[in-house]
Design a protein around this nucleic acid. Structure first.
Length: 557
RNA sequence: GUCUCCAUAGCUCAGCUGGAUAGAGCACGGGCCUUCUAAGCUCGCGGUCGUAGGUUCGAAUCCUACUGGGGACGCCA
């Protein structure tokens, strides 16, 4: 539609502006009453040495077409009002035919690997990990919608000095039965104690470093403990992932790369990038601190494993892109990582991208596992589900399968709350805000979807793909927004910004609720089916929007 | 100290490839359920777009500096 109009405008300008130049200038008017598409004439003022308002007046007279209902000049803007019914017919027909595939791009045979969630073994799954998990999951869904194959990778934090600490702590204070009964909580307890005691006993840290070194060297006892901690932790994480509805293609964590690092170190040596510094091996970098590859005791570091992981992923998936959905505080690390890869001659590192996000703060400060200052995600999810259940008991006590719906709504609220804002913003943890179900929330969108389902049922809607024959003037904003869906998907993908989908869904839901409030849907006359067809399209798109965010849409709530 | 992210209504945020009267939600005050789910709709209240310069016909949006806050900065991840 925009393109057709651009052709007309370009012609009316006698090609002084190309069709693509005009397309770039065409914009959505700021207010509904100003029409559907606007063409601002400011830039033409210079070219024609005339006031933009006069240009607008003159130009407007030369533009007409059967799909344009009206052309109005408002200052320097030409505002176009489109014929509503034909557009509505086209869009509704398309959505009814494509259903949840509406907005889906054709498969392009390229893979995007997404490294997300990646919790640390033996540490609680905190609110901090929620962000990476839900953002990464949404990005994977969006990438698939865009035609890519998404490879979901959970790069578990299952290796590193922290395991040395845990092993030492376990040998000192560990209780096998307690850990078996409640693995993460007990492991956290001894981990926190380790840090407390290490504050006035420096020898503990040395012991921990030694313990990790022997783990890396294949010590059997250490390995057995590591294995146990890992299995037990993973089992607990699975219950969280199940609640969130998130799954992975790979759980290859840091330990997986244990036997793949030597090759990297050798390669760095061969390429003469490795330099000794204070007993450690580093890759010096321009304009930023050096990248540490080996500690002075020979043990590897985070960066070493990430280098090995990057090479492995490139060889295994041959990805078009790789996203690392990791907190903003690790920006330097990824800058270093990508720079080292490029120094090694790996140009594919240009396709590797850190997708940072703001910190989850508590009382304005960063959470700290070591000090035991964390909010457990499991507790938050439980609270959200309980709150949702209370709401159901109050508002819809006769609802079937309340528990299931409460789960979908409660979890939906938490996920949506995280995804609706720009990912770079720091979030101060606020349980009140997370379990709010009114206003700009996930449950608001879910509620809108559920309302429509009820309408379709009560209105005995018969799905047909025949064009609609009527459109309420008040339903026109819905049609326009339905048309915009794929633009928002593309923007969400290009900016790696799921909030675009959340904002779009809110907007669409709000438009429906307005329409609903002022129009009797079940009118009983022959316009009812046309109305329900439009509204059904809204439901299809809302459900798909929620799905992309990783949120369920209950039929009733 | 260096680098980096953030700064818009009382609170949480949209808007940021420069353009028409800076928009939502929450909170607060009114109105709307004998009829489609009131987890809704509607009216009102509320803004020096952190500060100061600059670029421009035009700046919340671009540039510079400053202020305030978060974070990172060699043997953690």
């Amino acid at each position: 539609m925009k393109k057709q109009l651009a052709v007309l405008v370009s012609a009316a300008l006698q090609n002084d502006l190309s069709v693509s130049e005009v397309t770039a200038l065409l914009e959505k008017p700021k207010y509904e009453h100003l029409g559907d598409i606007a063409f601002p004439c400011f830039t033409l003022a210079k070219k024609y040495k005339k006031a933009p308002t006069i240009i607008a007046e003159e130009l407007a007279q030369h533009i007409q077409a059967d799909f344009i209902k009206e052309v109005k000049v408002e200052g320097a803007y030409i505002n176009f009002y489109l014929q509503q019914l034909p557009i509505a017919q086209q869009i509704v027909t398309q959505i009814l035919a494509e259903q949840n595939n509406y907005g889906t791009r054709n498969a392009n045979n390229a893979t995007i690997a997404i490294d997300f969630s990646s919790p640390n073994i033996a540490k609680p799954f905190s609110m901090g990990h929620l962000r990476s998990t839900v953002i990464g999951n949404a990005l994977a869904n969006i990438a698939e919608k865009m035609g890519y194959h998404a490879e979901r990778i959970n790069h578990l934090g299952d290796w590193g000095t922290q395991f040395g600490k845990l092993i030492v702590a376990y040998k000192l204070w560990g209780n096998k039965e307690a850990i078996e009964a409640n693995p993460i909580a007990e492991l956290l307890k001894i981990y926190v104690r380790f840090h407390d005691e290490a504050e006035h006993n420096e020898a503990l840290n040395d012991e921990a470093r030694q313990a990790f070194k022997s783990l890396e060297d294949g010590d059997e006892e250490a390995l057995a403990l590591w294995q146990w901690f890992r299995e037990a932790s993973l089992q607990e994480f699975q219950s969280i992932y199940k609640l969130l509805g998130v799954g992975f293609d790979s759980y290859n964590g840091e330990a997986f790369y244990n036997d793949k690092m030597e090759r990297i170190v050798t390669e760095l040596e061969e390429k003469q990038l490795l330099v000794e510094s204070d007993g450690a091996m580093v890759v010096p970098l321009e304009d930023m601190p050096p990248c540490l590859i080996k500690k002075n005791d020979g043990a590897t570091l985070y960066a070493t494993r990430d280098l090995a992981a990057a090479v492995y992923r490139q060889e295994t998936y041959k990805p078009a892109k790789v996203f690392y959905v990791v907190g903003n505080e690790q920006s330097l690390h990824f800058k270093q990582l990508f720079t080292v890869l490029k120094k090694m001659g790996y140009h594919w590192a240009d396709n590797y991208q850190h997708i940072p996000f703001g910190l989850m703060l508590i009382g304005g400060k960063k959470m700290s596992t070591r000090k035991g200052k964390v909010v457990l995600l499991a507790d938050v999810l439980k609270e959200a589900m309980d709150a949702a259940l209370r709401n159901i008991e109050e508002k819809n006590p006769t609802l079937a399968n309340k528990e299931q719906v409460a789960k979908e709504v409660g979890i939906g609220a938490v996920i949506f709350n995280d995804l609706k804002n720009d990912r770079m913003h720091d979030i101060d943890f606020d349980i009140e805000q997370m379990v709010t179900f009114e206003g700009e929330t996930g449950p608001y969108v879910q509620y809108t979807y559920a309302r429509i389902q009820t309408l379709l049922k009560k209105g005995a809607y018969i799905a047909e793909e025949a064009p609609i024959t009527y459109l309420d003037e008040t339903a026109w904003p819905l049609i326009k927004q339905l048309q915009d869906f794929s633009d928002y998907i593309a923007k969400a993908f290009n900016d790696a910004d799921p909030s675009q989908i959340a904002k779009y869904s809110l907007q669409l839901a709000r438009s429906f609720n307005k329409y609903y409030a002022q129009t009797k849907m079940l009118s009983g006359d022959d316009l009812q089916q046309a109305r329900l067809a439009v509204v059904n399209c809204v439901a299809i798109v809302l459900q798909e929007g929620l799905r992309l965010l990783g949120i369920a849409s209950p039929e009733e709530m």
